[in-house]
Design a protein around this nucleic acid. Structure first.
Lengths: 345, 345
DNA sequence: TATTAAAATACAATCGATTGTATTTTAATA
DNA sequence: TATTAAAATACAATCGATTGTATTTTAATA
């Protein structure tokens, strides 16, 4: 095979001009005469020339590449977020490298090193469930590579985040349950080292307080929020000496798991037991009864996060270097929680 | 900020040795004395040195990067496949660049150019619904960059594919419907320029033939297989002068759309109408009744495809340059199609 | 100790594009 | 036509790492 790449030097020597002129022509510089440009462009097409970004990037020390770290690509929320990131990045001429931590801190660390070695221009990250310290981010800071947290952010000073208002969304969700005559509300929570789950829990607690419903420690059951946790949690919950009639889940998956099991043991939803989930994954509209849930658009969050990051990359100094953007959520009321037909009191 | 990168030259000059020795030491070459290696390694850690892959890649003309092109990242099957690809690639030390064509040929073309410019070592591609000619792949071939189709492959000679046996899977699915006393079976198909949908259609037709059920052109309704197409297709179907009692859908999403509407108009599933989908997306196990569907593991397909590609990259010549791997599928029987309790006759 | 082979290290070119500076060409004006 | 400014192009260094070859150092042997 003629594996040899066509370079600007090939074009230059064929046309008998200097490679710097070819480079400038291909970058449409004003320093090259129109006539020469045309000649160069024509020849470059003829030879099938394609700029070598490696060389170009090396020289310019800019890669037009964004690194993205998510816990798990296949989780619907994240795949939506990635889609949003790719969409926005593509428009801005950026390429996207995707890595999944698989909820492992060690892997997250090694991914960051790999992204550093590849000299990405910026990083979007949603941290793993295992991540409890943030020293592995030091390399990014040191090298002055901007990064933006999305969804699973963490509480360290001077960083940028694209998040939702978990506290408020949770508060509203629980308020909705209370509004639907729930008197004893449980909460299936996630790992408490993650701010999002901490805040959802806080919102839950705040709503109970506001409406003078006693808060019970035992009704808050933490897990890693997989479908099987839903069943396990329900079983645990049913052993407790409370007549639980409402449940706020920190995500949809665990809620679906819970619903499936509750239906199995013939507990009526929502009559006996009202449920609200979180995320509005596609399963939530498919299950019966439909799952009331907090709608958070992964796509939107991805768009906004990518935009913010690209902004930080382009205006390194102009912009203040930390900022938190809150993407709106709304509660989608489906049947799983509607125990009264009248409007809100 | 001290934005200056630490290079092998910094290490070299500090230690008073040549940068080539530093380079060799960091690559653990046998040409460097153990003592020197230790000294270099220590210093490199002290200075926070991190190899610049751009420079290294440029020199070696190898990037350890795989390009992945999918129609839509957020489609469950594809996000699973991407997860599988990332997993396998990560293990082998490769990085993954993800791009989505959004079903647009033009975008697919531009993505390929961008991947070429970034000198990826190989490409995994699942073509868009719009892709009807394959000239945009010529650049890959010309530059001798290996590529592997997965899922949505195309019928061109001498290429490598990781696919499922769509014909067989569809055949079995329809056979299953027939086995469940369906006499008049419709098929919601996808764009016929895609081999997968063509083959699913062929499998459908072959099963009908085999069991002497008349094939009716009008009962094959093609669409882009979105959820709303499910409803639209059902409406179209119901205007036809046939008492349709079975439906084989080319994917789960359109099947769910159909089911939702059928339930809305009080057609009983599976009693009046048996349905089989394709892909085993999570919604299929959540809807009621559960959707019988062909289980195809995106994760597995991703794993296998990445493996095959990396193999092609590493053993350019040793291996024959085209090969098709078929990943197994199985029919998951759920309630949407079970109209008899006895075992298969 | 002198000789020689092997081990370790240095030198220098290279990957392909970019960019500041120097030189040449062209066009404008006296 | 001579002068000068502007436009166009060439020269040369550079981004950071790698690698074939040359040289130096070390160790082994006579």
């Amino acid at each position: 095979m003629d594996n040899k790449e066509v370079t600007i030097h090939d074009i230059a020597s064929i046309l008998g001009i200097d490679s710097s002129t070819v480079s400038r022509a291909l970058n449409d510089s004003s320093r090259v005469a129109k006539k020469t440009k045309d000649k160069i462009l024509e020849k470059s097409i003829e030879l099938g020339y394609q700029r070598n970004h490696l060389a170009s990037n090396l020289r310019k020390s800019k890669t037009f590449t964004l690194g993205v770290i998510v816990p798990r690509i296949s989780r619907q929320f994240f795949s939506n977020a990635i889609a949003g990131i790719e969409e926005t990045a593509f428009k801005a001429g950026y390429t996207v490298v995707i890595c999944q931590s698989l909820e492992s801190f060690e892997r997250e660390e090694s991914i960051i090193n790999s992204l550093l070695a590849n000299r990405v221009d910026g990083v979007l990250i949603s941290i793993s469930m295992e991540t409890k310290n943030y020293e592995h981010l030091a390399g990014l800071k040191q090298r002055n590579i901007p990064y933006v947290f999305f969804d699973r952010h963490c509480k360290i000073p001077e960083n940028s985040n694209v998040v939702i208002d978990d506290f408020k969304a949770a508060y509203k969700a629980v308020e909705h349950l209370i509004d639907n005559n729930c008197k004893e509300i449980a909460h299936f929570s996630g790992p408490q080292n993650l701010e999002i789950y901490k805040n959802r829990f806080k919102g839950y607690k705040a709503a109970l307080e506001k409406y003078n419903i006693p808060f019970r420690e035992e009704l808050v059951i933490s897990s890693s929020l997989m479908e099987n946790n839903g069943k396990e949690n329900v079983i645990k919950m049913l052993t407790l000496p409370y007549k639980v009639d409402g449940l706020f889940c920190a995500n949809d998956v665990v809620a679906i798991g819970a619903m499936k099991y509750l239906k199995e043991i013939n507990i009526k939803i929502p009559e006996d037991f009202a449920i609200v989930g979180f995320s509005n994954e596609s399963i939530s509209s498919v299950i019966e009864p439909g799952l009331t849930t907090v709608n958070q658009s992964g796509l939107k969050i991805g768009n906004v996060a990518a935009n913010l990051l690209i902004d930080k990359i382009s205006n390194e100094s102009k912009r203040k270097n930390h900022e938190t953007i809150i993407v709106k959520t709304n509660l989608i009321e489906r049947k799983s929680s509607l125990r009264k037909s009248d409007i809100k009191s």
